[in-house]
Each structure stands twice: as C-alpha cells, then as structure tokens.
C-alpha cells in the first residue's frame, strides 16, 4: 500500500512535468490520475523554474547570458475523484507568475495558466497480483487556453503568456508495474490542439497547430519498503510546427523537448505524502526550438480512502 501511494506521486509528477516556458516548450498533456486505492485526492504543487538555455532550431544548446534571468513560479492544484469503481475525473488549475530581467529592464506578470479537465478509466486493474501483468489506465484530457499565449501577450518579453493558446484534446495511457521494492511506469499521450483565428484590421491570421505527443518512462525504488522512495524519469515531448494562413502564410518549426527528473518522496501517513523533485532540460541535449529549464518542485498530496 505504501508503495502505491509513493508511486502515485511519481505518476503525477511525470505526467505534469512539462513546465517549460509557457510560450513555447512543454507538452499539452495534463494528468492527475488516481492510481492507488483512493476515492479522491488533492495535490498542491509549488514549482520554481528558471530558463537556463535555449535549444535553437536544428538542435544544440545556447546558454542564456548572465544578465538575462527568466523565472517562473507556479502554484498548481490537482483534484481528482472517482465517479465509479473504474472511472474517475479530475481538474488541474495552475496559477503562474513569470519574471524576466535583462540588465536594468524587468517585466513580470501573473495569473491563471491553462486549466485542464480529465476523465480516466482503469482499463487494466490489478485486483490480483501478477508478476508480469501491469496496471493500466487510459485517459482523455481537455485543455482550455485560459492562460493566454504568446499570441495574446501584451507585455514586454511576452511575459504575460502562461499557456499555449489553443483548445486541445489529449488521449493517452498510463501503465504501472512494481516488483518488490522496485517500480516502473510509462505514460504515453497524443494531443491535438485546435486551430484559431487572430482578427486584425489588416486581415485575419489563422493559426493551425499540428499533432503533438509526449511520453514518460520512470523507475523508482523504495529502500527497505520504507516511507521514502527515490525515482528518476525521462520525459520527451514533441509538437508539430504551427502553420499560419491569411495575413501571412508560413510554417513554424517543430518543438522537441527532453526532460530528466529526479524525485524523492515521503509518505507521512497513509493519506498524506509529499515529494521533492528536480528536473533538468539541459542534461539530454536533444531538444529543439525551445527554452530549456531547470526546475524544483515540492508537492503535498492528500488522499481519501475508497
């Protein structure tokens, strides 16, 4: 039981870990599934992130100059509840503050990020233990462009963009398995943002985003089956180029991002756990056309028994 709780923290973090610059990087998936034997859970996460580099178009890495400091603080609430034995639903609400300082110039903005809702189904329950058969859940997530985006931003450095700017639907699966003190998980997801039109007096600009996908592979260990768990994860994501039509026709560039994560979790009691996480998008230098972040996160999760 203990392992399941700690494990659920990993699942939450892995699936939500795309906290790259709201303007560009990151994936659209959003997920806070109940993966243990709980009826409901609420997770509060504090995230502090700094842009340390850019991955230019074509790859490579270009570190930010010391006078250019861009940080993001996020308070995120994830709530999920069972609606039947195998079905669940949930909501994610992020509040984001972004600050960018370049020399003597500074811009900052805060507000709501992209809100998302999900419905999950326990497709492969683990009612009986099996050495090989995993537990699997499938989900559908709807993301609302409540955070604005670079297309809507008005402030310097477009610092007031806190989301992707598109309505988006996502579908995916979460597969979990543990053996003794070891556990592993895999999240795969694909999403489709919907087109939108920006109206302007010189003409309309149609933005046509393409498909995106992301995944996450994680491994963890709970030493001596105690209250602590240590985990690592790798989370790649991909966004197709955004095409424009109307005022100007063209095609953007694809975005790919590789996030490495290390996590320490602690089970305070059966229904309360917490976790500290460090993630770095510069360790695997295969990202493309995105800002690269280093991020610390602290989360507390409260659960209610089924």
């Amino acid at each position: 039981m203990t392992k399941a709780f700690l494990f659920s923290l990993l699942v939450l973090l892995l699936s939500k870990w795309s906290v790259a610059a709201p303007c560009c990087g990151g994936s659209a998936n959003s997920l806070s599934l109940i993966s243990g034997d709980d009826s409901a859970q609420i997770t509060t996460t504090l995230i502090s992130s700094q842009v340390v580099a850019e991955a230019p178009v074509g790859g490579g890495i270009k570190y930010r100059k010391t006078h250019d400091n861009e940080t993001t603080q996020t308070l995120r609430i994830d709530a999920a509840t069972l609606i039947s034995d195998r079905w669940q639903t949930g909501l994610t609400v992020p509040v984001i503050r972004r600050v960018r300082t370049r020399g003597t110039h500074e811009a900052s903005a805060s507000g709501l990020g992209d809100v998302s809702l999900h419905v999950g189904f326990e497709a492969l329950p683990d009612w009986t233990y099996s050495v090989w058969r995993p537990k699997a859940m499938v989900f559908i997530t709807a993301t609302l462009p409540t955070g604005g985006s670079i297309y809507d931003a008005k402030e310097l450095y477009r610092i007031d963009s806190r989301g992707r700017g598109f309505y988006s639907l996502s579908a995916g699966a979460l597969i979990l398995k543990h053996w003794g003190i070891w556990d592993t998980s895999l999240v795969i997801e694909a999403h489709r943002p919907f087109s939108r039109t920006l109206k302007n007096e010189i003409g309309d600009l149609n933005l046509k985003p393409g498909w995106g996908t992301s995944g996450s592979l994680a491994v963890g260990v709970t030493p001596m089956s105690g209250d602590f768990r240590i985990g690592i994860a790798l989370t790649p994501s991909y966004e197709s180029p955004i095409a424009t039509e109307g005022v100007v026709s063209g095609q953007g560039e694809k975005v790919s991002l590789w996030t490495s994560t290390a996590q320490l979790s602690y089970l305070a009691n059966e229904f309360l756990s917490m976790s500290l996480t460090y993630s770095d998008q510069t360790l695997i230098q295969a990202s493309d056309n995105s800002t690269l972040n280093r991020t610390f996160a602290f989360l507390v999760q409260k659960r209610w028994e089924r």
Partner: peptide
C-alpha cells in the same frame, strides 16, 4: 490602399500586430 504592418518570428512563425 490601407497601410498595415506586422512582425513575424522567422523560427516559429509567430506573428504579431503593432499599432499603425
């Protein structure tokens, strides 16, 4: 004719409309 202006980021295709 109507005079307009906009800027486009080469890498990403992002387009923004200033005031004219």
């Amino acid at each position: 004719a109507q005079v307009g202006a906009f800027i486009r980021m080469t890498c990403c295709g992002s387009v923004f409309f200033p005031k004219v």
